[in-house]
């Protein structure tokens, strides 16, 4: 399959500027990374509603809390590694617990950060945000969906964590593909096995499904963009109808999307399952594609996992 590769960050910047035009309650904070996260676009359009907090992520989150407590809808951006782990307590105490209207849209997540190395490649942000009560977790699949997610979450009043990448990603949706929070998107129907992906791994699931079709295996593919609250209905239905599930994500397998799916299935409808993701290790510097290969995030890894699941099916 040949994909069009596009920037999620660019669409984030565009959506923010539109929101800024539509609504005066939108304010944006960044921590000396506005040129990278693209909140700079909002900053130049609405300088009075943009606050660069400098390299002070903890301070930024609590400042956002004060703004939100005063009626603002606050978008907060930085790299995912600094926007989650660095200020975890601030998010816990001042965002999630008081259930404030703060949207953390964090870029440069996962190993596709590439050359910067493990210090910058957060592979545990979904885990950190997922365990927080009141916090929703969304991983937009591509540039279109990033735009749609930003527009959609601005309508809600609750905390949301949105994870996007540094690199351009394959466009798997079109502009009209609906985005509804917590409503997983079935991208391909199938009856033999279900491949559930999020983020950059969805395109690989689609390619894996093509590959599996050559072996007579009919795979269903789901874009599970919202990891919390989880669309249990769609997940359980897929398990019931296909009898086996593979998850794929650019995140540690320890507590990411795959774990969320596994927990759901263990309690609701137990089927053979395999999680494709980063093993319990830190990343390292390297080119994106090399890293994806080394850390087991390829089409072949998904195909192999699907075969394994098929074997274990009764």
């Amino acid at each position: 399959m040949t994909w069009k590769w596009e920037s999620q960050r660019k669409q984030y910047g565009r959506a923010l500027v539109e929101l800024g035009k539509e609504r005066s309650d939108i304010v944006v904070l960044d921590a000396d990374l506005s040129s990278s996260t693209r909140t700079a676009d909002f900053a130049s359009a609405f300088p009075e509603r943009f606050f660069n907090c400098g390299i002070a992520e903890q301070n930024m989150i609590d400042t956002a809390a004060g703004l939100a407590a005063s009626g603002k809808t606050v978008f907060v951006s930085t790299f995912a590694v600094f926007g989650t782990g660095r200020c975890y307590d601030q998010i816990r105490q001042s965002v999630a617990y008081p259930k404030l209207n703060i949207k953390i849209v964090a870029s440069h997540a996962g190993i596709t950060v590439g050359g910067d190395g493990a210090s910058h490649q957060i592979i545990e942000d979904i885990a950190l945000m997922r365990v927080l009560p009141n916090m929703a977790v969304i991983v937009p699949v591509d540039s279109n969906e990033t735009y749609n997610v930003v527009k959609a979450i601005a309508k809600t009043k609750d905390p949301v964590y949105v994870r996007i990448g540094r690199a351009d990603v394959p466009t798997v949706t079109d502009k009209d593909t609906p985005f509804e929070m917590s409503k997983a998107n079935v991208m391909r129907d199938g009856t033999d096995v279900t491949l559930i992906g999020c983020g950059i791994l969805v395109s690989k699931c689609l390619e894996a499904a093509e590959e599996l079709a050559k072996h007579g295996i009919d795979a269903r593919v789901i874009n599970l963009h919202t990891i919390k609250p989880l669309d249990e209905k769609t997940v359980v239905k897929a398990a019931r109808e296909t009898g086996g599930v593979v998850t794929a994500e650019e995140h540690s397998v320890m507590m990411g999307m795959g774990s969320a799916v596994a927990m759901c299935l263990v309690e609701n409808f137990h089927v053979p399952m395999k999680r494709v993701g980063i093993p319990d290790v830190f990343g390292e510097s390297g080119a994106c594609n090399e890293l994806m290969e080394k850390y087991g995030l390829t089409i072949e890894n998904i195909v192999e996992a699907a075969h394994d699941v098929m074997k274990r099916k009764k």
């Binding site: 190395g117 390292e284 390297g286």
Partner: peptide, 29 residues
Amino acid sequence: TLRKLGSRLQGHPCMRKTPGVEMSTGSLG
């Protein structure tokens, strides 16, 4: 080999990989 896969020279200093590096850093502060 800076920033290349498998290199001892990570994009940001890693004390477990590079001789002479005293502390892993990269996240500022």
